[in-house]
């Protein structure tokens, strides 16, 4: 796609011979091609528009170098723009409090429970004692799933299969962790849609009650245009601290990463790239920018 895009951009610049720099007129078609490429990568329509407007402004007046094609030059400008948009530097999660509490939230099937297991494993390897709280009281076998993962990574899971109050389970898990002198509690929650008022109230109440030092929004990297709506609503209700991008072991371009970052201005902190418990990494903005552009 990168070759593809850069060839297309070169073609758009075909009539440029003799013109020494990028101007309003010669950049118009090019910007349209970039916008199209971004939308193909699932960047939100409006976000793609905003981003390409910025790219256009940055490229205007720039001298066209002899050594690179104008297409390549525009791709480079685009890549830099996307990279800086997604945050130049790596941001860590905040672990404060005794125990430190991490709340996990997101849509159905996005990968929350799997990520909860992975994060527990990672923190454990860093020498921290971890407890998991099973607060998904809805999905069939959600508690069993978390227990299996907890066992796999050697971390205890606090669950109350008969209790139908997620707030209470989270609070009791934290109390239990404190009693056992655990350093971190990760709270797995049920998947929910942003439009589900009742369920959004529940997660807001959980957050209110347990005051996590880190709230993470878990999102499937294959998400399309709707990523902005979902991220915005979750952020309005939870003011989350960071984003986890999952299922990057697929071949999705992952444009949702750009949309979300642009709309809620929260850093992406982790990427999840497999079903195994070690398929977790921190986020690299530059790699993601290249991925979105198909490089």
């Amino acid at each position: 796609m990168f070759d593809n895009l850069s060839t297309k951009l070169d073609k758009a610049f075909k009539n440029l011979k003799g013109q020494g720099s990028i101007t309003e007129i010669n950049v118009a078609t090019t910007v349209k091609e970039i916008r199209r490429a971004l939308i193909d990568a699932d960047v939100n329509f409006k976000v793609a528009k905003e981003v390409t407007d910025e790219i256009k402004n940055k490229s205007l007046g720039q001298d066209i170098l002899i050594s690179v094609s104008p297409g390549q030059m525009l791709v480079k400008i685009t890549q830099d723009e996307l990279t800086s948009l997604m945050g130049g530097t790596q941001e860590n999660i905040v672990l404060e409090g005794n125990p430190a509490v991490i709340l996990i939230a997101g849509l159905q099937g996005s990968g929350k429970t799997t990520f909860t297991g992975k994060l527990a494993s990672r923190l454990k390897k860093e020498g921290k004692s971890v407890m998991l709280a099973a607060c998904d009281i809805y999905r069939p076998a959600a508690i069993d799933q978390l227990k299996v993962l907890g066992e796999q990574v050697g971390v205890e899971v606090y669950a109350e299969p008969e209790n139908k109050n997620a707030v209470e389970i989270a609070q009791k898990a934290i109390a239990e962790a404190k009693a056992q002198n655990k350093k971190v509690v990760i709270v797995d929650t049920a998947g929910r849609l942003a439009v589900d008022e009742q369920m959004m109230n529940e997660i807001a109440a959980v957050k209110d009650a347990i005051q996590p030092s880190e709230t993470l929004f878990v999102v499937d990297s294959m998400t399309g245009q709707d990523a902005v709506n979902t991220a915005k609503t979750f952020n309005d209700r939870l003011d989350f601290d960071g984003v986890v991008l999952t299922k990057l072991d697929g071949d999705t371009r992952g444009g949702a990463a750009i949309s979300i970052r642009k709309v809620v201005e929260k850093p992406i902190k982790f990427i999840s790239y497999g079903e195994k418990m070690d398929a977790l990494d921190v986020f690299y903005p530059e790699r993601m920018a290249q991925r979105v552009l198909g490089m």
Binding site: A41, D220, T230, G250
Partner: peptide, 11 residues
């Protein structure tokens, strides 16, 4: 197919 999936659903 998940209704919230974007263009990757084609693949």
């Amino acid at each position: 197919l998940d209704g919230s999936t974007g263009q990757n659903a084609v693949m």
